[in-house]
Design a binder for these strands. Structure first.
Lengths: 236, 236
DNA sequence: CAGAGTAACTTGTATATACAACCAAATTCA
DNA sequence: TGAATTTGGTTGTATATACAAGTTACTCTG
């Protein structure tokens, strides 16, 4: 058996929810019911529910039952990672819609962000990442080609930043800035939302020991996306 | 017994780590050893270890053992911290405008979020934090008074969540969710922005080994606030 | 009718056990 | 010596069971 039983149960529950059979805030099958249905012990069913609670898919309360939490895509804030992996991990369909790939010259703010002289030639690309057909991230990235190693240059257009950076420099780091913005004309069009709708915009500056490799704007529709994570509290 | 046994074990482990007896990357007692030491079953000891792994305090690997995780590795975004300190650090003027402090009963979603029975009395407070006179954060927090230690109860209204939690339990953690929302009437009024303006809303669930201590909504006007930080890139 | 009590159901904690999967070091064998 | 095997310890999954604790709805009683 390749997949553990509690994973099987988790998948079953997710499918019911995604199919709309178990809507938001509705009560899901109880631990005993699931145990009977999957002919497993209650502890195994319980584990499936527990993990889904931790993932924010379900909510439980003693004596009452287990319920479907709000349905919004959520990703871990600790590791802002490849959105394709995340979507696949949720068991949803992933697709990309390339908008354009073209050279652009670094100007003003962009040149500063990347730490290059003005009019340096950058590789610009624009992609829309979709979850089950719905656009969920608009990615606009500027790459400094000089910092991309030669052996990756040929394939680099087809690689996600994660892919080529992880092959390139294991010690690559990124600085993220998160902002709430109102969708402008371009964003609204790409993400198929209304003009002015709130969006979560992440600016990612990726840098290795060589310098800033890329600058990317990742824009998510606020109505469809949130960012979650478990963090230690710090003082000062 | 007021405290469950697995919580007791968690606390024991945390104390050892905080006392420096179990340094970074050192192997901690195995499940069987802990079970013997606390005269409990292996599954109970295992649960304590599992939860500490999820919190990032420990790391496990099959066949090898359980180890103390890095205690640093938290960057500024990871430490969503006291906004007063941040503002002062920027050299700006900080002021607070208290809106209300009142008891409230936990209902439905809130009860689930805090993990308390329905109609539990919570301490609710609402504050507006200002930078140079401009409102920059609306804080709405619900605290479970039972989990606030006695010696902090008198002063707890005047303390920020950070202050009293850091005095209380060094290993307190929080789960954050970040969303882009449109300002409703109440928010717009408090933050002096237009209705529908995009806002960055952080939901913070703070929990210690005792349970969920507080739930807070921190709302920032998108036009005036951003969240930054440096994160390692993760793959898969 | 109002209220207390009870029954049925839920999740929460805990135990004891079994076997699988994995790792490292010791042992055995060629 | 060097490679394969065994052994003991570790975590991972799963079962069956028991009782505690919280919620709801029904029933009984005054």
């Amino acid at each position: 058996m390749p997949v553990p039983k509690f994973v099987e149960i988790k998948q079953y529950i997710c499918q019911r929810i995604e199919a709309g059979e178990w809507p938001e805030y509705s009560q899901v099958a109880s631990e005993n019911q699931l145990a009977q249905q999957f002919s497993c012990s209650r502890m195994t069913a319980r584990r499936a529910l527990t993990e889904l609670c931790e993932q924010g898919v379900l909510m439980r309360s003693q004596g009452l039952g287990t319920f479907v939490a709000e349905l919004k895509s959520q990703s871990s804030m600790l590791a802002i990672r490849n959105i394709a992996d995340e979507i696949k991990e949720r068991g949803h369909g992933y697709s990309v819609q390339p908008i354009c790939v073209e050279p652009r010259l670094a100007q003003a703010k962009l040149a500063v962000a990347l730490g290059v002289p003005n009019d340096t030639q950058l590789a610009y690309s624009e992609l829309v990442h979709c979850e089950d057909g719905y656009p969920i991230q608009l990615e606009q990235r500027f790459v400094n080609p000089e910092l991309v190693p030669d052996y990756l240059k040929q394939s680099f257009e087809s690689l996600t930043p994660h892919e080529y950076l992880s092959r390139h420099a294991p010690l690559t780091q990124a600085t993220h800035t998160i902002e709430a913005i109102a969708a402008d004309q371009a964003i609204a069009e790409r993400l198929q939302i209304a003009l002015g709708e709130p969006c979560l915009q992440i600016s990612r500056r990726t840098w290795s020991s060589q310098g800033v490799v890329s600058f990317a704007l990742l824009t998510h529709p606020g109505s469809r996306y949130r960012l979650g994570g478990q963090l230690p509290l710090h003082e000062s």
